[in-house]
Every structure is written in structure tokens, then in C-alpha cells.
Simulated assay, not measured.
Amino acid sequence: MPGTDWARSFLQRHKKDISQKVASNIQRARANVSREDIVQYFENLSETLKHIPACIIFNYDETNVQDDPGKQRLLVRRGTKYPERICNFTKTPTTIMMCGSASGVLLPPYVICKAEKMWKQWIEPGPKDEPCCNNRCCSVGSRYNRTQHGWMDAQTFTDWLESAFVPHAKSLPRRNVLIGDNLLAV
């Protein structure tokens, strides 16, 4: 049976052909999507949006970020196998929803914290850049919400849609196109 020395030698002999990389974990459904499926999707999308101005085509996506208190070196009694540092938290997820138009207009971010209730200190002063329009939908700046898990769910998505996107879309002269991912596949 080949051992680790054989594997190391094999990799060394074939270093021009193969290399070791850290793999990303993806779901089986995503792995089953072929290149042809992706090409066909973008061809259909291009055809569908051919005569629609870029200023009314919007795309949204959310991403989850986590803080990490990290590990620290501790002075412990000799023989301690598993030193632990006690803290009130480990990793806390926060979700950020972003939405922008194909013409480059960026709506204010929508931030979802993991919490039982929102604290005023968390949201004042929130990020506020030049608003994309002077209407209330954008001039108030970032919007905040909370869930018990810190992720976007149907209720927070609906709140974002009703409080941020729809008011902005109503300020535009015609119907809008909103493209998103499989966010609500909960």
C-alpha cells in the first residue's frame, strides 16, 4: 500500500501537471450546472433585456460575513491539554444586501445583524454616501434589521424590498427589472 512518502514523491515527479489547492465546498445542484447551461442563461438574458435601458435593470445579492475573535496564546499550567478562553461570543454572522443598476447606480446597503432586538448604537451613524436619488428611499442611507441567526430570510427580504427597492423603483419613469439569486429558496 503506498504511503505518504510515495504520495509526496508522486506529486514532486508530476509538479508540472498537478498541484494541490484548497477546495471550495459547493452544493451538488450547483456542481451539476454545465457550462452550456450558463451560456444559454446569459444568451436568454441578453435577448430579454436587449431593448431595456441599463438604468432600470437592477441586480441584488446578499453576502454573509462573520467576525472572528480569533485564537490567542495563553499561559497555562503545564499538562493542560485543551486551554480555553471564555468569551460571550464565538463567531457572529452579519448579512449585507447590496443592489445596483446596470448603469452603476448603487442603492444604500441593507444590513442584517444577529440579535434579539436592534440597538440604536449599532445603526448610528451608519454608512451614508451620496444618495443615488434625493427621495427618502435613498437619502436616509443604510437600512438595518435583525434576525435570530443573522441571515436573510423571507421576512427581512420583504422588508428590504418594500422599504428600499420598491420606493426607489417607483421614482423611476417606468417598470424595472430586478434580477437576484436563489435567496428565497429557504
Rank of each mutant, 00 (worst) to 15 (best):
F89H: 13
A154R: 12
N176S: 13
E116Y: 03
R8F: 03
I179T: 04
P131M: 03
R8T: 15
W151E: 05
H149W: 02
M118P: 02
Q72K: 09
K16Q: 10
E36Y: 03
C87H: 09
N134S: 09
E62K: 03
P108M: 05
N88Q: 10
V186Q: 12
F42R: 09
V105N: 08
V33F: 00
L172V: 02
V111L: 12
F89K: 15
T4C: 10
P2F: 10
K71I: 10
V166A: 05
C137P: 02
K91F: 03
W122S: 15
F165M: 08
Q40F: 06
F165Y: 12
A169R: 07
S171D: 14
I123F: 01
V140S: 13
S46I: 00
S163V: 06
F42P: 01
C132R: 01
N88K: 15
G126D: 01
L75S: 13
E43V: 07
K170Y: 14
R136F: 05
C55Y: 09
R73D: 06
I38S: 08
K120P: 00
C55N: 11
V177Q: 04
N32A: 15
S19G: 10
L178W: 05
E62F: 03
C133E: 10
C99K: 08
P109R: 06
S9I: 08
E47I: 02
G104T: 14
D17P: 00
Q155L: 06
P125N: 14
D61C: 02
S24E: 15
T158K: 10
P131N: 06
S163Q: 14
M1A: 12
D129I: 08
Q72L: 02
K21Q: 14
I179P: 02
Y82P: 01
T80G: 05
I56C: 07
R8P: 00
E47L: 08
A7F: 15
R77N: 11
I96C: 05
P127A: 06
A115G: 06
T48V: 04
D68H: 09
A169M: 08
P173S: 13
R143L: 13
G70E: 12
N135D: 10
P173E: 13
E47T: 11
N145Q: 06
S139F: 00
L172H: 06
C138F: 11
K16Y: 07
I56P: 00
S171L: 06
V65P: 00
P69L: 08
T94R: 15
T94L: 14
D129V: 15
P109D: 04
K170V: 13
G3M: 08
M97R: 07
F58S: 12
V177H: 11
A169S: 15
K15G: 04
E47N: 11
K21T: 14
A115L: 02
